[in-house]
Amino acid sequence: MTIVTAPPELDKTDTSTRPRRSRARWIILAVLLVLCLLVVAPILVVVLNAFKTPADYASNGPLSIPESISFQGIVDFWERVDFTRKLLNSLVTALSVAVLGVLLSVLNAYALGIGRVRGRVWFLVFFLVANLLPQEVLVYPLYYISKALYLYDSPVAIIIIFTVIQSAFGTYLLSSVYDEFPRELLDAAAVDGAGKWRTLFGVVVPVSMPTLGVLFTFFFIWTWNEFFLPLIFLVSADNQTVPVALAVLQGDRLMDATATSASALVGILPAVLFFLIFQRTLTRGIAAGAIK
């Protein structure tokens, strides 16, 4: 692995290599485009087939352009599983967790990052470990406890559990941000006679809004995509979230190729929508180390 394997200088501004450079440039771009297309291909195949009739699929296969745009598969699927209901369930859960999770993270991080309460290192280690735990190691007692509290098969249990799980990550991240919070701002608030609560909501929260936005976005998308706990906790059809509803239907006798594509399309669309809306926040967040 030494210099011998090195490709000819791609970036040198030597004019004599221009033709080779431009060819190399197109080859590299083409390879990247093909790779990227391969990554996106499964989604494209879904879009292509979601609008076909089963007969069209049977005779022309998965890669043909639909003979006519048919919304029948999507409409059938939507009505059969009451998809509006699943969308609402997912929306309510993800939104509640995002709001409550950010709030809990802020409270924790205010005490740990700005307040530097005693034992903060140990709290941070705890939140770090909590963030690492596989959900399998919590699930059975949570299942048992929620049954005892009549919270089983209720979105409330899922909202509470994910609020805490996500805020473990949020606390860890936000504490390191608040660690470096400009002291002058806190001092100024204190001079103005603001108490701790007013400082928190009048100074700290507004100033750290960009970071909170990132956290909110991540919590929302993570919760929307969560599968393991919702699968176990939300057993009745009325309470299922989108991923659970789709996974449970899988293998159903009515789910042929076009119905599967239609269901996958409606399952993917909200996520793609968030992705497009939050794209900037997401990339900024990933850069800030907001990762899981």
Binding site: L107, N108, G115, R118, V137, P141, I160, T163, V164, K196
Partner: peptide, 29 residues
């Protein structure tokens, strides 16, 4: 100096919630 104390109450909801959803289930498992 004055800022050092008094932040502990902000940690209470976090501690209670973490106990219920993480610590107790973990120990139980």
């Amino acid at each position: 100096q004055k800022r050092q104390g008094g932040y502990a109450p902000f940690l209470i909801p976090g501690i209670v919630a973490s106990l219920a959803v993480i610590v107790v289930p973990l120990v139980m498992t």
